[in-house]
Design a protein around this nucleic acid. Structure first.
Lengths: 125, 125
DNA sequence: CTGTATCCCACTCGATACTG
DNA sequence: CAGTATCGAGTGGGATACAG
């Protein structure tokens, strides 16, 4: 029952745009995609390691975004009962289904930077 | 000088996350990806047609987002000097480079809805 | 028809301080 | 170590009115 994207879909148009909205809404925000990318690239990570690898993110934001990702089954959270507690975060097999898209976005972003720099006056930074 | 994404890149990590941020920043917001999708699927469209096809978007938002997309060379804008002016918007060949990603996001979003509905109590709507 | 200008609320996100 | 609580600035985006 998988539906495939047609180039010029005439039917289920509403459903498709809704699906796109779902995806974008979930991935919205400054950090979530980045977190996914890091977990995909670097594998299982502890909270503090994640915070170090994701430059600029605060504990609050990292917590909140990880919770959303966990709720959406993209990331798994494991508490290790060590002396001070440590927590491991890991991308789930299901989360891996986003890996390809995220990496394509990376590629596209790099290409886009070149494209814009070459074509116009860079707007900023 | 094209850089490729390795599964576990050790070098140019900063560059990659920066590229990902670029891409996400550009695509951020409620409407841009949707506009791109519509222009990809439906081809050249006038302003008012776009507004009709994209349910819920206001003129202000449509204008603003189209301007951003045009600035980023993803969309072209053509003014037709008809009696009341009409304007045609069209995805550029460059903009088409996002088509694949956008459609994959659509697919993923549809799959995700099923996945979440099957696995948990739906949170809302 | 295709926008622009204003007003305004809600929400995002950062900073900081605190807890088990 | 891994969070939570609270405050506050900035912004995204809706509603409405107006303009070329």
């Amino acid at each position: 029952m998988k539906t495939y994207i047609n180039k010029y879909p005439e039917c289920d148009y509403k459903g498709r745009t809704r699906a796109l909205n779902d995806a974008m809404e979930l991935l919205q925000g400054k950090w979530k995609v980045l977190i996914i990318a890091v977990l995909c690239c670097r594998g299982r990570k502890r909270f503090s390691d994640l915070q170090q690898e994701i430059e600029g993110i605060s504990a609050k934001m990292l917590t909140r975004e990880l919770q959303v990702l966990e709720l959406n089954l993209l990331v798994s959270r494991t508490v290790c009962s060590t002396k001070p507690v440590t927590v491991r975060y890991e991308i789930t097999p299901y989360g891996k289904t986003l890996e390809k898209i995220v990496f394509q976005l990376m590629d596209w972003g790099a290409e886009h930077r070149r494209h814009i720099m070459a074509s116009t006056q860079p707007v900023n930074s």
